[in-house]
Simulated assay, not measured.
Amino acid sequence: MDELYPEYVTKEAIEGLTKKLNLPKPDMYSQDWEYEVTDSARVAEFMDFYGNNTLNKEEKFALMKIIISSYDEALTEEMANEKIASQIKSYLILDVYIHRNTISYWALLDEVDIEDCFAITPLMREVHAAL
């Protein structure tokens, strides 16, 4: 198993996911495409796609970043679904060799005050504790 966890979304992953999921392509000013395409209304669709399609490591990494950002938005909008939270945890643990950096980023382990964290931080801390 590759011990080098992905850190960045690649151009190839963006190209693959824009075609497969009909996502907007980045423009010349895009810096964080995976956050620009966040969509709380599509979290279930993204999760279904992650679990039921053949994706390479880079596509899984990029798509999970979109999923987590989208679910964070759903939590903020009070549109979150506990079933999806459970699926996110399962996929993160299953593919931890891909998502360790993403888990750490969203878990904000050094932050004591949960009020200063993302809405999804408690979930990501649960994932981190399960590793």
Rank of each mutant, 00 (worst) to 15 (best):
68 I>P: 06
130 A>W: 07
102 T>Y: 01
108 L>W: 00
95 D>E: 12
26 P>F: 04
76 T>D: 04
26 P>A: 04
111 E>W: 04
46 F>N: 10
116 D>R: 05
128 H>G: 02
103 I>A: 07
6 P>E: 14
46 F>R: 09
98 I>H: 08
56 N>D: 13
29 Y>F: 09
3 E>P: 02
103 I>W: 11
61 F>P: 03
93 I>A: 03
81 N>G: 04
55 L>I: 12
49 F>C: 07
119 A>C: 14
1 M>E: 05
100 R>S: 09
22 N>D: 14
64 M>I: 12
64 M>C: 13
34 E>P: 01
53 N>H: 15
100 R>T: 06
22 N>V: 12
113 D>A: 10
86 S>K: 15
85 A>Y: 07
106 W>F: 15
5 Y>D: 12
6 P>I: 13
64 M>W: 06
39 D>A: 14
110 D>V: 08
63 L>Y: 09
123 L>K: 12
106 W>R: 12
89 K>W: 00
10 T>I: 08
5 Y>V: 15
102 T>V: 15
10 T>W: 02
14 I>E: 06
116 D>E: 13
71 Y>R: 14
32 D>H: 00
67 I>V: 14
115 E>T: 15
10 T>R: 02
39 D>H: 10
122 P>F: 10
75 L>P: 04
18 T>L: 03
104 S>Q: 09
50 Y>P: 11
48 D>P: 00
5 Y>P: 04
92 L>C: 14
37 V>C: 09
18 T>Q: 08
8 Y>V: 14
114 I>M: 13
23 L>Y: 03
83 K>H: 05
20 K>Y: 03
40 S>D: 12
113 D>T: 01
104 S>K: 15
131 L>A: 07
95 D>M: 04
15 E>P: 00
116 D>M: 09
59 E>F: 01
107 A>G: 12
103 I>P: 03
49 F>V: 05
69 S>P: 00
80 A>C: 01
68 I>T: 07
131 L>H: 05
62 A>W: 06
112 V>F: 08
92 L>P: 01
110 D>W: 03
58 E>L: 07
112 V>G: 03
76 T>Y: 08
117 C>S: 13
74 A>E: 05
26 P>D: 01
77 E>F: 07
83 K>R: 05
120 I>S: 13
109 L>S: 10
7 E>R: 06
7 E>N: 11
121 T>E: 07
20 K>D: 11
97 Y>Q: 05
116 D>N: 15
79 M>G: 10
84 I>Y: 12
12 E>Q: 14
27 D>K: 02
130 A>C: 07
118 F>T: 08
84 I>M: 13
82 E>Q: 05
116 D>I: 01
72 D>A: 09
108 L>R: 12
116 D>C: 10
48 D>M: 11
10 T>K: 07
44 A>P: 00
36 E>A: 11
120 I>F: 01
